[in-house]
Design a protein around this nucleic acid. Sequence first.
DNA 1: TCCACCCTATTTGTTTGACAAATTTCTACC
DNA 2: GGTAGAAATTTGTCAAACAAATAGGGTGGA
Lengths: 254, 254
Amino acid sequence: MAKGSVSDGARKPRKTYEQIITHIREAISSGKLHPGDRLPPEVDLARSLGVSRPTVREALKVLEALNVLESSTGPTGGTFVKPLDGAGVADYLMDSISLLLDVQELTLEELWTARGAIEVPLAGMAALKRTEQDLAVLRGIIESDEYRDFHAYFPDITFHTTIAEASRNRLLSLFMLSIHTTIKALAERYVLPEAKQVSQDQHRLIYEAILDQDEALARRHMKEHLQMAYEVYREAVPKKDTDEATKEVSGDNA
Amino acid sequence: MAKGSVSDGARKPRKTYEQIITHIREAISSGKLHPGDRLPPEVDLARSLGVSRPTVREALKVLEALNVLESSTGPTGGTFVKPLDGAGVADYLMDSISLLLDVQELTLEELWTARGAIEVPLAGMAALKRTEQDLAVLRGIIESDEYRDFHAYFPDITFHTTIAEASRNRLLSLFMLSIHTTIKALAERYVLPEAKQVSQDQHRLIYEAILDQDEALARRHMKEHLQMAYEVYREAVPKKDTDEATKEVSGDNA
DNA sequence: TCCACCCTATTTGTTTGACAAATTTCTACC
DNA sequence: GGTAGAAATTTGTCAAACAAATAGGGTGGA
């Protein structure tokens, strides 16, 4: 029958498009599909799986949203397996965290506490594992004059990201990045506080601790840096009332 | 009028189904849609948005995959806004972490280091914030005799989850849960080591520290507990060869 | 009265076939 | 040889229907 290659095995996902999703995921996990590989055109895929194109598309769109696939039009286009580098995961996490904040399933305090729990050890690990190249990058950031020009967030986020990379822990880096990006989005939504110079000084302290491979000192300075930053942000971001959802938003819902 | 309500505003998402996705997301973020709310049937949605049903469905399937919506068939069925409690995020994270491990974009060592970085502070916070009820639950777990009966993982995961909840930080709890679930899946895939009794003893030590509200001690015992567990797992889980992907999987891919 | 069964209504799930839009490649013309 | 336009390829969107699942109501029987 050649078709119906999806319907073998697992019975858990009853719906066709879910079967296709797991089919493709397994193909990637098991190495049958590698990052960068191009999938057959939707029409061919549908035919070879014995299903219709809309059904295939539902599966593809889901995997696209999950940052597993990527598609574009044209002869050179098609659907490709995305390199799985965790950046997509961080994006998703960032979206989710923002949403949780919006819906009050998360408080600013929890967010900042989590940031501290992750970034303080990260700084310590970076102090132990940093390479000469990491140091060079950090030095470049600290000595950059962008601290004044821009939102004061470009150097900050790259500084912290570089430390995360220097720690050589990609999972904590991912967590850190998603939290940091969320905070950055918040900072942009409300006014961004002027803490540039202070931030720059503190960055220098952290850098020097990492330079000296002084784990404890790196942790302490990072901790102080974050506490200071939290103070600033807590005042800038307005407290959400328990229900301010009653604001007019040109509602058409009926 | 009734149609085209999607096409206003932002130009970033050019594709129709993406516009619908952000449309619904914004409706949730802004409070126009609450968890538990039921969306109109797909046909009505399509008509009121001025698009076709397959397009609407692509958007809905994506939001379903993102754990934002949920749908079922039948008269009482339909598409509903999911209560946004972070459990879905943890699920997604768990999947992603597993995938990253499979593709060697993450090592076991990184995973366990991250676990330590998160759970050690978590234990400390729990020691400070625990309530009488938290203590009661923990006590129940420790004194349970399931440590011998089952996989030895049921009590473990509930114990750690309870501590996470006692810390009152939902973001770190979410991270912790996703890591823990990933490790549990690994443990089930390979044989699960027999470390039950030791685990139970260590749990008791952690519990007592939390009981006494001794933050430092709680952290230390958690740290030791995790280090011990890591030793066991590192030996149980085989190191992945750089390519063992060449195993036959009844491949039909042409 | 009560219960089991079927029948119907509602909603998502899936199929078919077509056309539109985007994008690259090929080709003809200058 | 270069450039503009036509053709080919692939995803994006549309339309109308049928299939499957599920809940509720109605009917018949005990």
